[in-house]
Simulated assay, not measured.
Amino acid sequence: MEAKQWLEKTKDYVSETATYQDTELTSAEVSSLWNTYIHYSLLTCVFRYFERIEADESDIRPLMSEILGLSEKRIRRVAEIFNKDNVNVPMGFTEKDLNLGAPRLFTDSYHLYYMRNMCEFGLTRNILNLNLSTRSDIIDFYEKSIATTTELNRKVVNVMLSKGILPRHPYIPISDQRAITRQTSFLTGFIGEKRPLLAEEISHLYLNILINHIGRVLLTGFAQVAKSEKVRDYMLGGIKISDSIIEEFTSILREDGIPTPLPWDAGVTDSTVAPFSDKLMMYHVGLLNNSGVGAYGVSLAASPRHDIGAKYVKFMANAGMYAEKGTKIMMENGWMEEPPQVYKGNKVGKTH
């Protein structure tokens, strides 16, 4: 496209009479929709399997059916938008990545913890995608996605409450006195006496412990059924990282006498039959790893004490190295679908 033609097109974005649905998708919208398609094609495979082997037909299976229906609906909507705008629909994940004949790999309780985790992840991503969108139909899509995911999360929480398995953040005594801090010791944590943990620091520490515990169970199941030795070793490496994070964050809470109750009934069976392809499992772990990096960044900003901040920085770096190793494994096996990128003329379609 010539520069003059491109400038003419961009007028639509600033014109008072512009109809946003008639404009081309922005880079942010293409990226958001592409990732949305991949994510929900993965969840479609996961919940088709979970729905089939779920034993609790009264409470848990209906939730899985609802998630499955929402995932399929969102995939179709993204495909419609891409087809209309002449954007290639991603390959994503299909029946080739799913083995519905596989026996149960996780406990029923873990299915609930997993659903809660995926609802939280979906809300975070969809809110970000909404903020990145400017075209009316894309805004509408993400607004509806947020609303339905919020309602679904409420249902999952209610079921977990009814079964007495909803993890709750620690309760702490709160002073009834207001105070202004003027001492720099409020920030320190490496040398000398440490100040007590802030409620916000506690909430982030416990959240990251819980997320890593749920992720650890997933990694354990995946390591148990992975066909490739490299994939199995990668999963085992992730378990070690999760164990390290759980131990270090728990020790910080323990210093202030803060309990860290974790789900005891979220487990793995003895099955060694893979319900998913190694490709899907690798991508899933990458998805959770990226989510973890984002969570550590938010937690870092919410934690003024230097020793806590340093741990978040360390684990962000570790997660980055772990993610790179996973990406290389996916590339070696031809599992890495290339995301949308800048058009480079005769370089388009080139294999990197």
Rank of each mutant, 00 (worst) to 15 (best):
Y234H: 14
F315R: 07
L152W: 06
H213R: 12
L166V: 12
R216P: 04
Y312N: 02
G309T: 06
D59A: 05
N35H: 01
S244K: 15
F141E: 08
N35K: 03
S27N: 06
G294K: 00
L218D: 01
E200G: 06
W6M: 15
T150S: 14
N88Y: 10
S162N: 08
N153I: 13
K240G: 01
S271T: 10
F50Y: 07
T134C: 12
E332W: 06
M330Q: 07
S109L: 11
I214W: 00
F190C: 07
K73I: 04
V159T: 11
G349D: 08
R254H: 15
L7D: 03
I81L: 08
N129Y: 05
H352V: 05
E332S: 07
Q341L: 13
T150K: 12
N208K: 12
A223H: 03
G122C: 09
V268A: 03
M160T: 04
P304T: 07
G257M: 08
N158T: 13
K194S: 02
G297T: 14
Y37D: 12
W335I: 07
A3W: 08
Y142G: 02
I211S: 03
E193T: 15
G267E: 13
S71A: 06
E16T: 14
R232H: 02
K240C: 00
M64A: 02
N208P: 02
V313K: 09
K84Q: 10
S244R: 14
R168L: 15
F186D: 11
T148S: 14
D137W: 05
V78R: 00
